[in-house]
Computed example of a mutant assay.
Amino acid sequence: MSEVPDMKQAFLASRIFDGTTRDYRTNTALLIEGLQIVALVPQSQVPSEYQAVDLGSLSILPGLIDCHVHLVWNGSHDPNALLQRESNEKTAVRALLHAFQELMHGVTTVRDVGGLYHVTLAVRDATREQLFIGPRILAAGMPIQMTGGHARNLGLEVDGPHEARKGVRTMLRAGVDLIKLMATGGVYTEGEEPGSPQLTVEEMRAAVEEAHKAG
């Protein structure tokens, strides 16, 4: 993917929300140099070297952050069934599409809290290396869960504190950004009671201790 030229642009919109107050700004321009936001200034004070981009009645706001996604899942009532039918390669393509769709809806950062094998890690790396267009992705890889636990088709199954610790080490070696523990039951798993305890306190303590050692 070619690099973005170091252009100076002034984006003009009817409203700009910068998040510093509850109010939005009007008659304001967003100044950008290349990929860097440099200032918000009144539209009447845009420097002459900036190319104006008039967005008309559109609004500008900061990129959104989605803290809980599963890029490998679709929006069906049983996303695990699809994962069991299709190949990992097709799942990766689907996850790339979902990442792109997130960005097109204004989400610039997502936290993926459970994916099939290392598919989401590959998607994360592909977007970081600009092989595909997508948001910033923080990926947990495979969640740590008890044998037969919640979302069992996604996770790394462990039983006992020793295996929980080893499971975290396995995910850290794979290069995850965070660790996801399936502490309780939830939806999407047949015959499971949402909120019912699954991982023990001892298992979670061992996992958390190991994760904290990594920073």
Rank of each mutant, 00 (worst) to 15 (best):
G185S: 06
P5C: 05
I60D: 01
E190Y: 11
E209Q: 12
K213G: 13
L31C: 07
V201M: 10
S14V: 03
A174Y: 11
A211N: 02
Y24P: 00
T91W: 02
Q198D: 11
A92I: 04
A81H: 11
P5L: 10
I32T: 03
H98N: 15
L131M: 14
I37H: 04
F17Y: 15
G175N: 05
D125T: 12
A122E: 13
L131K: 15
P47T: 07
P62Y: 00
R111D: 09
T21C: 00
E3P: 01
A95C: 05
L103G: 08
D54T: 06
N153M: 09
E210N: 02
T109E: 02
L12I: 15
E193F: 07
Q84D: 12
V72M: 02
H212P: 01
V208Y: 04
I65C: 01
S48G: 05
L82N: 03
D18F: 00
E129H: 11
T26R: 04
R128H: 11
R111S: 14
P62W: 00
V187W: 09
H212C: 13
A140I: 04
R152Q: 15
I16C: 01
Q130W: 07
M7T: 15
S59I: 08
N153T: 13
Y188L: 15
A13K: 06
G134Q: 03
E193C: 08
A10N: 01
M171P: 01
A140Q: 05
I144R: 07
S59A: 14
M1S: 14
E163I: 02
M171Y: 04
H77M: 09
V187D: 10
L58Y: 11
I60A: 03
I179F: 07
A92Y: 08
L61A: 12
P143V: 08
E190V: 13
L58A: 13
F132N: 09
G175A: 07
A95Y: 10
H150D: 08
P197M: 04
T170S: 14
K166I: 12
I144K: 05
E193I: 15
L138H: 14
T20R: 04
D78C: 05
A126E: 10
V123A: 10
E3D: 09
I137M: 05
D78Q: 12
A95T: 09
A174W: 11
A29D: 01
T189N: 05
L199A: 08
A95S: 12
R85I: 08
R85Y: 06
D125R: 14
L30R: 00
L55A: 03
D6V: 07
P47W: 06
L116V: 11
R136F: 04
F11T: 02
V113Q: 12
H98I: 04
E33H: 09
L35M: 12
S48P: 03
T200H: 06
E203W: 03
D18K: 00
D177C: 04
T200I: 04
I179T: 04
S48T: 14
R152D: 14
H162N: 11
G63C: 03
Q145T: 13
V201T: 13
